[in-house]
Design a protein around this nucleic acid. Structure first.
Lengths: 234, 234
DNA sequence: GAGTGGTCTAGACCACGTA
DNA sequence: ACGTGGTCTAGACCACTCA
């Protein structure tokens, strides 16, 4: 199995420090030639490294070495910016859109409302060190947080909730599964259709146990590692 | 993009109920012919469905429709068998090996012991409805749980701990990331090298907050969905 | 405009699973 | 023994990126 050997050689180059975080690999044609194989086989090796989270692709831009993943605790959701900075990463949030939309069946179920009820949809992309790593969609119950649109939504929602609504995230129900990016979810992350992703879904409650909002997050799967503590409830 | 159309057609057949859970797909050559394309392109479409968790492969056996994932709460780890049964699934655990081994660096760090310290390694495969879905390796501190080897290790460790050692899992520190299966991890799950996986790592403490053991789990990524609740600690 | 990655073709051989 | 999936070759065209 040639592609396993190629994969291992590239892996060695990464671990030896010859190739470093964020660095772009040579072109597929050059790599294929240097390993004396075809592009198809070379791409097989790269795909394997991709699924192990060691390299990633940007659509039509090429292959890059993956940085260390962000350690992310979904139970202590607070603040993406603080989290990133505490791990010596440079965060950035880009607001793509924020509009009222009717809830589809899935969102209605999460928020425990009737389908087609109007909710505020906030759609953002978050970056680490100038790489887009996660697509976050928040659906917010407007009666709980009126006039949210008047605030700067590229800042942290947690902070806005706290400072302007005296509202805290207290309890969270979360789900995690692996998934993949297609078309609309792939493009803002500069990914190719079919790119593996980590999907995190959360439903958040405030200090009075009122349902506040939910968020759906699509992470580049190499960019994140879940890390949390739990104490058994009984 | 032909492979996207093919993917969608197969997806429709799944969602329409034409293809059902666990069912084997026709051979790649037949599928390729029926979609009027080559095997390479057809496999591209199947790989996409695989990364979305809709189909899975068994090495050299073919492609199958993925059942619903098991909903798994790592914070309430209890018992694989009870969990599976509560979701109308048929569980099975197969003990592959249970031996004393010197801890490697990673395990030593997790268990907070010196590298090369002897620990009990329990290596098991778990099945849902006769499909192998997860490879579980436990590393147990022998002084905490002496003579563990004398028990039936295809049963639940939680139950053995509780019944024979008066020991409960109380606190858990867990990590989750996406990963992939290679060689040794792939074979027991009947997977191909490079198959996407969900990696879950836990360090478990008892009711006196003594470190007990750790477990490393490699799940077929389509077979599991993490689901948990958390209340903020402050 | 050159070179790149994304996609696709039309084959091939082999080792393995299954009957 | 047959057919299968796993792997590989040697091309090709296109749309896009980037200098």
């Amino acid at each position: 199995m040639q592609y396993l050997n190629i994969k291992n050689e590239i892996l060695q180059q990464i671990e030896s420090g010859l190739l470093t975080s964020g660095q772009k690999l040579p072109s597929e044609r050059k790599l294929a030639e240097s390993f004396n194989t075809t592009r198809v086989t070379l791409r097989e090796a790269l795909s394997l490294l991709e699924s192990e989270g060691r390299v990633y692709r940007e659509d039509r831009r090429g292959w890059f070495i993956s940085p260390e993943p962000l350690r992310y605790d979904p139970t202590n959701t607070t603040n993406f910016h603080r989290l990133a900075q505490s791990q010596q990463r440079t965060p950035k949030t880009e607001l793509i859109s924020a509009t009222m939309v009717p809830a589809d069946n899935h969102i209605a179920q999460l928020l425990q409302i009737a389908p087609q009820t109007e909710v505020l949809k906030i759609y953002r992309v978050r970056y680490l060190d100038d790489r887009p790593v996660v697509l976050v969609t928040n659906y917010v119950l407007p009666e709980r947080l009126p006039n949210l649109l008047s605030h700067d939504l590229s800042a942290s929602l947690t902070d806005i909730y706290q400072q302007h609504y005296d509202t805290l995230y207290q309890r969270t129900h979360y789900r995690i599964r692996s998934s993949s990016l297609v078309a609309d979810t792939a493009a803002p992350l500069r990914a190719t259709s079919g790119c593996a992703a980590m999907y995190i879904e959360r439903v958040n409650y405030d200090q009075h146990d009122n349902l506040l909002d939910c968020d759906l997050e699509y992470w580049r799967h190499d960019a994140v590692m879940i890390e949390a503590q739990a104490t058994r409830q009984q």
